[in-house]
Design a protein around this nucleic acid. Structure first.
Lengths: 162, 162
DNA sequence: CGACTTTGCTTGTACTGTCAACTTTTCGCC
DNA sequence: GGCGAAAAGTTGACAGTACAAGCAAAGTCG
């Protein structure tokens, strides 16, 4: 496990892109959290959990699947779902097919909250990201994030929808 | 403060780019934290603080300036610098020119820690991001993040380097 | 030149996320 | 079919962050 004598530092161009990406990765989640907490009483992660459940057949998913679709660790998801269940937004039941597994169901209050929050969230997503880019840049961004996720998530567990 | 009757939902292309960006924003900080904590005992945010100080004249910056350069809120920075000071990496002193302001200085142990951590961090940055992209994509990424930061950080407080 | 506002930072509390350990169920296999 | 290993979640302790409040110094202005 030796390290090379000479480090390949970043060029000026690479450094600008790197710093830009770090800043976006820092500021975007904060901006999304801020809007959703203010207008809907939800974390952005809460929103993603509810959204993924709402799109799933039977409005229900196994915890592991849900964790993959939200890019989250299982302990984190477990805690969040516990809180959402306490608010009546979600219900957890053991999976009949596999007694180890837990299925999370989107309850009616959770659905209503999501439906109420969605328009504002989309407006925010457009204002901060989509409408700030040209169609070409949106396409480039899709390619770039695809390449990055291949490194960040080698098993490619998430991203595969349906 | 009325909302439009019809929401402009995202197209399929836009949605893929959006989801990709969200995933990257979720996974990249976690991956950077993980490597730096394991190999250097530093948070990625700790690293950024030390790095910004190391590049500043006199290895010193005012807290507000440091907060801007690290995309952080002031309370967050204050807590982090408190811990770094406890470890002997940083020293805080009142600014002689403005008694309200605090200047943070990078101390020798902090410098040494940073120098030891930098090569591994750059290797990681290349492995996860830079080397995953073509030169053209790096250039595109710089433009895209520039456009996004204009929305996320309208006052353009950060990003302007020394 | 004294009240008022603004700026710069710190502090305390509450919440969120992480990590390691643990329980329970299922799978692989001789 | 019984034993070891892996998988699925949960839990509890701890670290890190956000938010709101507070305090002190500096600027402003009648």
């Amino acid at each position: 496990m030796t390290t090379p004598d000479e480090v390949r530092w970043l060029t000026a161009d690479q450094l600008r892109a790197w710093v830009g990406l770090l800043s976006v990765a820092e500021l975007l989640p904060a901006a999304l959290d801020s809007q959703l907490r203010r207008d809907a009483g939800l974390t952005h992660f809460d929103y993603q959990v509810l959204a993924m459940l709402s799109e799933a057949p039977g409005r229900s998913l196994r915890m592991t699947t849900l964790a993959q679709r939200t890019s989250a660790t299982l302990p984190r998801l477990s805690h969040v779902v516990e809180r959402l269940e306490g608010r009546g937004f979600v219900v957890r039941t053991p999976d009949p097919d596999d007694a180890r597994a837990t299925r999370a169901y989107l309850a009616e209050p959770g659905w209503d909250t999501l439906v109420a929050a969605a328009p504002g969230h989309v407006v925010n997503a457009r204002a901060l990201v989509i409408d700030a880019l040209t169609d070409e840049q949106v396409s480039q961004l899709e390619s770039i994030t695809g390449a990055l996720l291949a490194r960040l998530d080698p098993e490619d567990r998430l991203a595969r929808r349906g």
